[in-house]
Amino acid sequence: MGLQRNLAALAWALALGLAAPVSAAPAATYRNPLRVHLANGAPAQNCADPAVVRDARARTPTWYLYCTSDPVSKTERPLPGESGPWHFHMIAIYRSTDLVNWNYVGDAFADRPAGLAAPTSGLWAPEPEYMGGRYYLYFTVTDVADAHSPEAGCANDSAIGVAVADSPAGPWVPAAAPVVAPRRAGPGCDFHWTFDPKVVEDGGRKWIYYGSYGGGVFVQPLRADGLAAAGTPRKVGAAGRYEGAEVVRHGGWWYLFASTTDCCNGPLTGYAVYAGRARTPAGPFLDRLGQDLAAA
């Protein structure tokens, strides 16, 4: 989650650039940060892990933007039962017809999905997809309900959840069980980071990518209904090195983009984006030097 949470400008550029089809006609000019407005017209001050989907049914080209569960304005005070100084949005949703001006639509959820997420869990890195005539919203559950965890009482047993809707604005109905369950890294409450979902389709077959620095990035087939992983997971990004996988198809290749903090030698430090490509969504993804991104 580091790149998405700390380099919002880069994430905006990646999300918007990858989302816009060639036929779209966005505004001729724009200036960052983009104009994102709450319902009262005030500016939204935060949108971590932005992800965009185009409305497949709208006559006018229309896009929807989804953000990690977070406070989005210092002017919004906590609601009854919330802790902290500000109100948390449970995956804020915004709409645009030009990819520049965005207006608040609502939140994907009124609260954390009961029975899936623990009461204090984060809902991170939303991933919207349009598949089979319906919309799917995949998201990280940072702390699943004990019923879905191999170790009760843990706060870091992360998983991937999903909700389904007939419209990109919702209402979203969350699945009762995780798409990808928590994965043990060791005894007790030692779990891999099951973060940052990304879903693609290839010839009718669905694939889900997930993972982060803690354990690496993996790809796994999805069940036909998109509600659960199936088959054997395969590592496509080395542990301790990559997070925030984004996968696109272009020119007969599948390209995996992932962020890393291990980018530079000498005095230069910070995040960078690495890329590898493969002939199939399952990888292996090789960089321009022919090195496998899954190699340590």
Rank of each mutant, 00 (worst) to 15 (best):
G2Q: 10
G2I: 11
R5T: 11
A8V: 14
L10H: 12
W12R: 15
P21M: 12
A24C: 10
A25T: 14
P26K: 10
N32C: 08
P33I: 13
A39K: 15
N40I: 02
A42S: 05
A44H: 08
A44C: 14
A44M: 15
D49V: 07
A51P: 07
D55E: 12
R57T: 15
R57K: 12
L65K: 14
T68L: 06
P71Q: 09
P71F: 09
V72C: 15
V72Y: 09
K74W: 11
R77P: 06
P80H: 04
G84A: 11
P85Q: 03
P85N: 05
W86M: 03
W86V: 09
Y94F: 15
Y94C: 08
T97W: 08
T97L: 04
L99T: 06
Y104K: 08
A110N: 08
A114S: 08
A114W: 00
G115D: 08
G115Q: 01
A118T: 11
G122D: 01
W124A: 06
A125K: 04
P126R: 03
G133W: 07
Y138L: 10
F139D: 04
D143E: 15
D143M: 10
V144Q: 02
A145Y: 05
D146Y: 05
D146S: 05
A147H: 01
G153D: 07
C154N: 04
S158W: 00
I160K: 11
G161C: 06
A165Q: 10
D166Y: 01
D166E: 15
P171H: 08
V173M: 07
A176V: 01
A177D: 06
P182A: 02
R184L: 09
P187E: 05
G188D: 06
D190I: 03
F191H: 03
H192T: 00
T194E: 09
F195D: 11
K198M: 06
K198C: 11
V199Y: 07
V200D: 07
E201W: 00
E201C: 03
G203D: 04
G203Q: 02
Y210S: 07
Y213N: 05
G215Y: 09
G216P: 03
P221S: 04
A224G: 06
G226Y: 01
G226R: 02
G226S: 01
A229Q: 00
A230D: 05
R234V: 14
R234Q: 02
K235Q: 14
K235D: 03
G240A: 03
R241Q: 02
Y242A: 07
Y242W: 02
E243F: 04
G251Q: 13
L256A: 10
A258T: 12
S259L: 06
T260N: 07
C263A: 14
G266P: 09
G266A: 10
P267E: 11
A272N: 13
A272M: 07
A272K: 13
V273M: 15
V273A: 05
Y274S: 13
T280S: 13
P281T: 08
A282L: 13
D287V: 10
D287H: 05
R288N: 09
Q291F: 05
D292K: 05
D292L: 01
A296K: 06
